[in-house]
Each structure stands twice: as C-alpha cells, then as structure tokens.
Simulated assay, not measured.
Amino acid sequence: MTSAVGERFGTGPLARGAALVHHLLVVEVLLVVTAGPALGLLTLLDRDWSNLPLAAVCALPAGPALSAALFALHHRRLDLADLRPAAAFLRGYRLNAGAAVRVWGLWLAWMSVLGVNLTHLGAAGLPGWWAGPLVLVGAGATLWMLNALVICSLFEFRTRDAARLAAYLLVRTSSVTVANACLIVVALGVTWAFSDAVLALAGSLLVLALLGGSRRLIDVVRTEYTR
C-alpha cells in the first residue's frame, strides 16, 4: 500500500504544475543573479545612441545566463520528489558559457553596428528608406541568434557549425522562425508597454516559450545532426 502511494506521489497534474512553477521561479532568480548586476548598469547609462557599444558590453552576461536557463528548463524534472533546477542551471552555465558568449557577443556587436547606422543615416548621406532594410537585417540576425543559442545550449557543436546550422534552420524549420518572430514581438511589446525590468522578471517564461516554439528545431538537430 505504501509503495503504491509512493509511486503516485508527485505524478498528478497539480503536482506537475507545482513542479513547473518551482522550476520557473528558481530559474528566474538565477537569471537575475547571473545577469542582473550587469544589466542593472544599463539603467545608469543615458538614453543616447552613442552609448550602444557600452550597453552591449553590459548585456554580454545575459547570454550565458539565458543559455543556462534553456539547459535547465529543457532538462527539468516534474517529479516533486526530485527537483534540482539550480543544479541543472549551474551545470548548463558551466558547460555552455563559452559558446553562448560567442554567439550572444556576435549578435550584440552586429546590433550595435546596425543601431549606429540607423541613427546616422543622414550623416552617411543615405536616404531615410534605408532604415527599413536595416531593421529587417536586425530582425533576421535576432532570429538567427535565437536558433544558435538553443543549439549551443542543448547540443555540443563547434560555434561556427552551430552558427551555420542556425542559419540553415531559419528556412528548414520555418514554423520555429515564425514562433520566434512572435516571441520577439511580445518581448518588444512588454518592453514598450512596461519596462526592461518587467521583461527581465519574465525571463524564465520567455525562455520556456522559446523552448516550446523550438521543438521542431530541437527534433531536427537531434535526429539528423547528432549520433
């Protein structure tokens, strides 16, 4: 009798929901701890486009933190008797920090260049309509970064191979690309309607949404590009 009760413990819908909430809360706290101090420096910068490079440096620690969150939520266990999200987060941080910094840093550098160009179109003698193509390039770079971050966080690839695969899968897994585009719109909407702080406090939810939208990509990489 005791054995049967033990087998049922922590396996029901309510228990699994509580376990998921626990994972999200712990991962959110760890995201704030690992990326928050550097991102907090952004609030001290003047809202001036000339500070874009410095803002990119402040945002650099967010890359490994997001990668660790992806790893932890992907490997989450919904058994109330075996909850170790903090251990999974720290393991993901240790394993993937280097690759995440390279992918995230490349994206930040590219977005800084695009931002500077957007704000100096007149100085460069370019017409205003050039802003449209530059925004599209920035959107494409962000979609690529999300793919690359997922791949680097969940699989073992060289960074250049992960970058190429992420670009290829933008087209191959178009449903993932659309889902990520919607996620970007939601993130921008939250930032515009509220603040950067609200977006940061919803970090674990956004990571969970990114994982959910990337299932097709994860399946393709696992079945076709890993042994």
Rank of each mutant, 00 (worst) to 15 (best):
E156I: 11
T119P: 02
V29P: 09
R227A: 13
A19I: 05
L165Q: 01
W130L: 00
A167V: 11
A162K: 02
W129E: 11
M1V: 14
P133I: 00
W129D: 08
P61A: 03
L83K: 03
P37A: 02
L154C: 08
R16G: 08
L14T: 12
T159G: 05
T191P: 00
L208M: 09
A193T: 09
G40A: 01
A72Q: 03
H75M: 05
V113R: 07
L201R: 03
V26N: 00
T159W: 05
R227P: 14
R215P: 03
V207R: 03
G92I: 04
A56D: 03
L208I: 12
R222Y: 11
L217P: 00
F157W: 04
M1W: 12
R216E: 15
G140W: 04
L146Y: 04
V29L: 11
A4M: 08
A100T: 04
F157H: 07
A202V: 06
Y168H: 13
G36I: 02
G212H: 01
L210A: 05
A72W: 02
D48L: 07
R47Y: 08
H75W: 06
P53A: 00
P53E: 01
L78K: 04
G6H: 10
L31I: 14
R160T: 12
L80S: 01
P85V: 03
A187W: 00
W144C: 10
A35G: 10
R84Q: 09
R91H: 14
D79A: 13
L90F: 15
L95R: 14
P85H: 02
L169P: 00
S50F: 09
A97C: 08
W49T: 14
A86T: 11
L31C: 04
R222N: 13
A65T: 03
D79M: 07
L66E: 01
A86R: 14
L211D: 07
A88E: 14
L24S: 01
N51I: 07
T223C: 04
T142G: 06
T226M: 12
V221P: 00
A62C: 13
L30P: 02
V103I: 15
L70F: 00
L199N: 01
L70T: 07
R47I: 13
A38V: 03
S175W: 05
G17D: 10
L20E: 13
L44T: 10
G92V: 03
V221T: 08
R160D: 07
L149Q: 05
G138C: 10
R216A: 13
H22F: 15
A15E: 13
V32P: 05
A187D: 03
H120M: 14
G138H: 06
G122Q: 15
T11C: 14
L24P: 01
G12I: 13
L154G: 02
V57R: 02
L20G: 01
R160H: 11
N96R: 15
V101A: 06
S175C: 07
L30F: 06
G189P: 04
A59M: 13
L170H: 09
G12F: 08
A99N: 05
A200Y: 00
A65R: 00
A163E: 06
V113W: 03
A162H: 04
L188M: 12
H22A: 06
V198R: 02
Y93D: 09
T119V: 12
V21L: 14
P37W: 05
A109F: 11
L80E: 08
V198K: 06
